[in-house]
Design a protein around this nucleic acid. Structure first.
Lengths: 226, 226
DNA sequence: GTGAACTGACCGCACGTACGGGCAGAGTAG
DNA sequence: CTACTCTGCCCGTACGTGCGGTCAGTTCAC
């Protein structure tokens, strides 16, 4: 179908597996995990249900793989821009810029992940993804604590603040439209401004960190896209 | 079972219907709409699946009823505390205090609603609930605009800010534990502080609006509980 | 030959819903 | 008060369907 000129003509060298995962991810994003099913994915790709089972075993494992891929990427990129930025307000802003950017950069995986995050908490087989998620949150909490210690952020409950921030970002899938007239940069900037100002960052630093052409946004853009 | 001394001994005056809805709501909160099923609800209540169908017709309509009940209550209560409070920062804080309070006051309905909000956007039969949701958001947007016009909030995108705020609140169901050591008042206070400070409200006004014993929190508590 | 990719028929089950009937209380006529 | 009917709540069963997963077998590259 949308074969992008793979190596072998008849047999894609394992790229088929990825194709399945991508399509499944899109279905999860559109309908949710429960309503996504092998039959639809298979017929859309022109192969049989058995093939999907052959590659992934069970539906649960497929979802787990989606979550792990998403989190691995997010973690890698977060660590990348943490090494490139040093000021706490820039670091925190980069998390916001990146988080918003994922909505347009890879909407399917992002939405699939956010729709089904709750399964990380109780479902078995999700241990890896859960650990990744916790690690990611710990990165943000660390930035908040560092900033607090450095006097950049006013004292407060860092964990709670991280949850407040993640809430705003993880809720985006219910209303954000990548094709809409609201640009992701505008959303990220507004979110950054309210958040950083809310943490007590001075107005000039807020403006710089929220600016779509400022160091935090630029860094996030470079890391996330390529 | 848990019959609270109803009027007629043999025949509960329609309270059975409510009982079914309450149980269904709890199941949706715990497992999500797709995994909630008539069989489990029926057996838990000691009645047959047919009874549920008799009362509600279809599963969709049951969910719609849950959403509408929740939104009707939220709307009524929001209008109530808007008439009692006049300062924008207090009004906005009341939304936050109330929103957090719902998590402990009626966790099942709140979680059921928040888990399945996305169905409001596309599913048919949800028009009423969707209109209620939009009306609720418009109330918040109105408060944000008023506060901006009055010079209490710094200029910005009111709609975007409302979404940022709702995100933090609607995401709570994924992490907040009513039995946990984190009190709802503490969460509401921290959320209020970050949000209001982020909107440019002076520190003293922030402290008052966020205070669990301040006018906004007290008003929200009175309205929400009874 | 060996093994991976893939097929297509099939199983078992869970779930939403339809349907016919039972049963108890309210209303009504005598 | 009695007898009869009406009505709404409720039951039990059965049906259709959709879906996850199994399995024996085929094709094809190395």
């Amino acid at each position: 179908m949308t074969e992008p000129a793979t190596v072998a003509p008849g047999r894609a060298r394992g790229g088929r597996r990825d194709e399945i995962l991508v399509t499944f991810t899109r279905h999860v994003a559109e309908r949710g995990y429960d309503r996504a099913n092998f039959g639809d994915v298979a017929s859309e790709l022109g192969l049989s249900k058995g093939t999907i089972v052959h590659h992934f075993g069970t539906k649960d494992r497929m979802l787990a793989e989606v979550q792990e891929r998403y989190m691995r990427r997010a973690l890698d990129e977060a660590r990348a821009f943490l090494t490139r930025l040093d000021r706490p307000e820039h670091r925190l802003a980069a998390f916001v810029h990146a988080g918003v950017r994922y909505q347009t950069d890879d909407p399917a995986t992002t939405i699939a992940f956010q729709r089904e995050v709750v399964r990380l908490t109780d479902e078995p087989g999700m241990e890896t993804a859960r650990a990744q998620r916790d690690a990611y949150r710990d990165l943000v909490v660390g930035v908040l604590r560092d900033g607090e210690a450095a006097g950049v952020f006013v004292p407060g409950d860092a964990r709670l603040r991280s949850l407040q921030m993640f809430g705003s970002l993880h809720w985006m899938w219910t209303w954000f439209d990548p094709q809409g007239r609201l640009a992701p940069e505008a959303v990220a900037a507004e979110f950054c401004r309210t958040l950083l100002r809310g943490l007590g960052v001075p107005e000039t630093a807020v403006a710089q960190a929220a600016d779509p052409d400022g160091p935090a946004a630029v860094c996030a853009r470079e890391v996330v896209v390529g």
